[in-house]
Amino acid sequence: MALSDADVQKQIKHMMAFIEQEANEKAEEIDAKAEEEFNIEKGRLVQTQRLKIMEYYEKKEKQIEQQKKIQMSNLMNQARLKVLKARDDMISDLLNEARTRLATIAKDPTQYQTLMDGLILQGFYQLLEPKVTIRCRQNDLNTVQAAVQKSIPIYQAAVKNTINVHIDQDNHLPADISGGVEIYNADGKIKVSNTLESRLDLMAQQMMPEIRVELFGANQNRKFLD
């Protein structure tokens, strides 16, 4: 049975509607998949960039922390150096004051004579030479002569040997030193410096650990005392 034109047109419309519906459904499916892929890619890119930003700021934070540590270390070192300098300045001032007070020792004739006796006798023992030369300040000549006369018999009795002592009256020690003597062997190559300044320097060097403890207290970071 042949279809009428109306039936043909109706089937064509039905087929077109079906095709259009399938096309729309396909288009919606493509759009949905594209949207899903877009969201996935967008999320991946956002996550990637977020991680990069986090890594960047973590790196910056570490750099800032490192800089803070370096600055803190530098400040602590500067403070430590200032403390050490202040301590050294205090010790220098103390030694300078002690040197200034040395001049008062020679003003007491009895005390100074006793000290000179000991310095000269000690010099004899240190050299242990048969011939020695003594240099002193010009105004100490009498004090030195008296000390030599007293020290020679003590020394000779102790070492069982003689000693010839020459007091150099042409080459005096500088007048600006506080006192004491320099004693030389016969050829002048060996010297014992027993001036008051040299004795103070030696004493300060030997007693420096005790001086520092007395002034600043014990060093808690020091493991050994010798």
Rank of each mutant, 00 (worst) to 15 (best):
L3C: 03
L3T: 03
S4Q: 02
S4H: 00
A6V: 11
Q11N: 07
K13S: 15
K13Y: 08
H14C: 05
Q21V: 03
E22L: 11
E22G: 06
A27R: 08
A27H: 05
E29K: 01
E35N: 04
E37R: 03
I40N: 10
E41T: 02
E41I: 01
K42G: 01
V46N: 05
Y57H: 10
Y57V: 08
Q63P: 01
E65L: 12
Q66K: 09
Q71N: 09
M72V: 02
M76C: 05
M76H: 08
Q78R: 14
L81D: 12
A86C: 04
I91K: 09
I91Q: 07
S92G: 04
S92K: 15
L95M: 14
A98G: 04
R101A: 09
I105W: 03
K107Y: 03
P109I: 11
Y112C: 10
D117F: 08
L119F: 05
L121D: 00
L121F: 07
Y125T: 06
L127W: 00
T133A: 00
C136E: 00
Q138I: 07
L141E: 13
L141G: 02
T143D: 05
V148Y: 02
S151E: 11
S151Y: 06
I154L: 14
I154P: 02
A157W: 00
K160L: 12
N164E: 13
V165K: 02
D168A: 06
Q169K: 13
H172L: 14
S178Y: 01
G180Q: 00
V181F: 06
E182N: 11
A186Y: 03
D187R: 13
G188H: 09
K191M: 15
S193Y: 04
N194L: 13
S198R: 10
L200P: 00
A204N: 01
A204R: 01
Q206K: 13
M208I: 08
M208S: 09
P209M: 02
V213I: 15
L215N: 11
